[in-house]
Amino acid sequence: MAVSESKLQHSPTLNTILMVEETLKDADSIITIPELKKKLPKKVNHNTLKVILEYLEESNKIAVSLKGITWIFNTNVNLKNVVHNGLEL
């Protein structure tokens, strides 16, 4: 993963990443960036938030569309097993 100079100026802390993750997990459905900023317990620099969202998208935890952002990461072990092993009908 290539990191540009501008991203290094807004490097998020682990606590900030976890805070954004928890807020997105708790969101009911698709959420826009302005809505996300309002729901966050602490203010986050816009460029830092963009870096976090880019990381979450690359790690397949969120999906970003024209309508907004939604949490897609699933920790269900049974679902992972079905996806990995396949399901016979």
Rank of each mutant, 00 (worst) to 15 (best):
N85Y: 10
I52W: 04
K43M: 09
L24G: 00
K61I: 06
A63S: 14
E22Q: 05
H84C: 02
V64S: 05
T75W: 06
T75F: 05
P12N: 07
N81G: 00
N74D: 15
H10C: 04
A2Y: 14
E5T: 07
H46I: 08
N78E: 14
A27K: 13
G68I: 13
N76E: 13
V83A: 11
N76Y: 09
E22V: 00
S65M: 07
S6E: 10
S4M: 04
S6Q: 08
V64D: 02
E35N: 14
L18C: 01
I33H: 01
H46M: 08
H10F: 15
T48L: 02
L56F: 09
K43E: 15
T75L: 15
H10D: 07
L87R: 15
S4W: 08
V20R: 05
D26E: 09
T75R: 08
V64Y: 04
S4A: 08
P41R: 12
L87N: 10
E35H: 08
N60Q: 08
T70Y: 07
T48H: 10
L89G: 03
N15T: 04
M1R: 13
A2W: 13
T48V: 10
F73H: 12
I17G: 00
P41G: 06
N74G: 04
N81S: 06
E35Y: 12
K50I: 13
I69S: 06
T32P: 03
E54M: 11
W71G: 10
K42G: 02
S6N: 12
V77Y: 05
L14M: 10
I69Y: 05
I30Q: 00
N81T: 04
N60T: 04
D28V: 13
Y55T: 09
K43N: 13
Y55S: 03
N74Q: 01
N76H: 06
L24E: 02
E54P: 00
T48K: 14
L89T: 03
N15S: 12
G86D: 09
L8I: 10
P12T: 01
K80Q: 06
K7Q: 14
V51N: 15
L89A: 02
H46V: 05
F73T: 00
K38W: 09
